[in-house]
Amino acid sequence: MVFSRPTLTELRKQVAADIAAGLPGVNALLRYNNLTIIGDVEAALVDGCFGYLDWITKQSVPFTAEDEYLEGWAALKGVTRKPAIAATGKVTFNGTAGTIPASTVLTRSDGLSFTVDVDTDLINGIAVAGITAASAGASPNTVLGTTLSLASAISGINSLCTVTEAITGGLDVERDDDLRTRMIAEYARPASGGSSTDYENWALSIPGVTRAWCVPKLYGAGTVGVLFMMDDVRSEHGGFPQGTNGVATAETRGVVATGDQLALANALYELQPVTALVYLVACTENRIDLTIDGLSTATDTTKTAIAAAFASALLSTAVPSGSSPLSAIEAKIASVSGAAGFVITEVTASAGTVSPGPTGNISSNPGTLPVAGSITYI
């Protein structure tokens, strides 16, 4: 039976009744009587105790635990909170001559700082330097064209520089809800020595990885393929990892990966069974374009909402080499205010098929994920 916690008002009434019962024949609860004040204080204290007990109850089970208590429950299953990641990018300096030393500090207009990665020489009046945010997190992510300034002047170098490769990849510390989702999955499906679920959970435990799929025997017997996406840190690339497919650095039986694939391959190498030959493979794009009749006069706001609904429908059903039902797209678009009366007259796929007919369900080629392309209104 669920315990029904009394409200503060109910506690005050209960304490008042107890005081009155303990002093029969006396009006002990006059408006400015000390006993009335003491009774209200006692009720408030008891209410605080009930609140503390409620909080303890939440921390005592993994489904509702918070902060360090959630991390403690997760640690019992080997799941740890993903740390924050520092953003990186490139800036272009101008000047007459000189060198921008490594660790040179740059500042953004809001006070956030970045440091130059390596010594960079000015050549023909221009220098392109890689930089890293001084603090991890999503706040330092910066768009192209933003101006940064040198914290300390350097002879021969202009004090202002321009972001010429967007500063991206910054991620905040994993939120409680995301950590809880991974933890509960581990409780529900504990590690079993290298099952498909194990590889997916291992990949999802790596900072930056948001979706992962395991493909047994991808390149024949004894091989395991892990396909993955990095929707946040690679948002400027549609969430698709950047690098080349392959195996971990320490693996001698295959071509070593590069970029994001290598980082994940090396992380999985410490977790995977020793006999498995694991290939990290970036998903590729299956661009889906739509032609819609009946909404040519719709407002820009409605069309923007339709585009978001289209992308959401594909994301909710996206599985490499999988199928995306047209009905899911139609249902999402139909929920948009102002979209009544539309008809999808054509669906095209850049790396897949549409069947039956030009407005059928979408099938993606091996290793590809459906992503929203353009919408043509007629």
Rank of each mutant, 00 (worst) to 15 (best):
S103R: 13
V91F: 09
S113A: 13
T92R: 14
T107S: 14
V116F: 10
F114N: 03
G89N: 05
I126T: 15
V91P: 04
D117I: 09
T104Q: 03
G111A: 07
N94S: 15
S113L: 13
S103Y: 04
V116K: 04
N94A: 14
G111M: 06
V105E: 07
A87F: 01
V91Q: 05
I100F: 03
L122A: 03
V105I: 15
N124V: 02
I126K: 14
A97E: 11
T92S: 14
V118W: 00
T88L: 03
R108H: 11
T88I: 13
G125W: 04
T88V: 15
N124P: 00
L112D: 05
K90N: 12
V91Y: 03
L112W: 04
L112F: 05
N124M: 08
G98H: 12
S113C: 09
L112G: 06
N94C: 05
T92K: 11
L122R: 07
D121H: 08
T115Q: 13
I126R: 14
R108Q: 14
A87G: 02
T92Q: 15
L106T: 06
G89P: 09
T115P: 00
G125T: 04
R108C: 00
V105G: 00
V105K: 07
I100L: 05
T107R: 09
A102E: 09
G95A: 12
V116Y: 02
T92F: 00
L106P: 03
G95Q: 06
L112K: 13
A127E: 08
T99H: 02
V116C: 07
A129R: 02
F114M: 09
A87M: 10
S113T: 15
T92V: 12
A129E: 05
V118Y: 03
S109N: 07
G89S: 10
A102S: 13
I123Y: 10
T120G: 01
A127K: 04
A97K: 11
G95W: 04
D121G: 07
T104R: 11
A129T: 05
R108S: 14
T107W: 00
N94I: 09
T107C: 03
T96W: 00
I126Q: 14
T92L: 13
L106M: 11
V128W: 00
G130L: 04
V116H: 05
D110E: 07
V105S: 05
G95M: 06
V128Y: 03
A102T: 12
G130R: 10
R108T: 10
R108K: 15
K90S: 14
A97W: 06
T107P: 01
D121A: 15
G130H: 02
T88Y: 02
D121E: 15
A102G: 11
G89W: 06
L112I: 11
